[in-house]
Nucleic acid binder design. Structure first.
Lengths: 70, 70
DNA sequence: TAAATATATACCCGAACGGGTATAATATGA
DNA sequence: TCATATTATACCCGTTCGGGTATATATTTA
């Protein structure tokens, strides 16, 4: 569903972190991490970026339903 | 500064729309459009997506400071 | 199976987003 | 120049995010 939420969940698991550990390390609330990974749409962008930054990413405009390569 | 804000401003001007017109067509508040284009970080993601959608884009994870091609 | 770990759901509540609006500043054009 | 259009700044205020916390559910492991 939500691209960003899936990305965070994937990267987090790939890093072998629990939601709690990731919340701690990123300085975000556990509640927020959960809502983000579950695809909540009305999250705040700065918090999203704070999470993405942990994996060297930021939120940016990407073509709808389109693929993009790094 | 903010990638998304710059993107919206660019696309909007390219489309020959004023902030007011764009706010109307996108169903967003004029206040929000301005804050977004001025790089406000603490905006809500769903509103950002509502704006990006007008130009066929959505917010997604992109490599930090990295280029990406469509 | 049971115990332990991880994730999900529900609540309280302070802080702040964002719509609307009014006014100021800036840009554009005749 | 002056008039108009566009953008920026400031305020009020209802709605809601998100931190923290407690509890329930699900998953993993012995």
């Amino acid at each position: 569903m939500n691209v960003i939420g899936m990305f965070i969940r994937d990267q987090r698991k790939r890093a072998g972190l629990t939601q709690e550990e990731f919340a701690l390390r990123s300085g975000l609330g556990l509640r927020f991490i959960r809502e983000l990974e579950q695809g909540k749409q009305t999250v705040r962008l700065d918090k999203v970026n704070q999470a993405l930054k942990m994996f060297g990413h930021v939120a940016g405009p990407v073509p709808m339903d389109g693929e993009y390569r790094t």
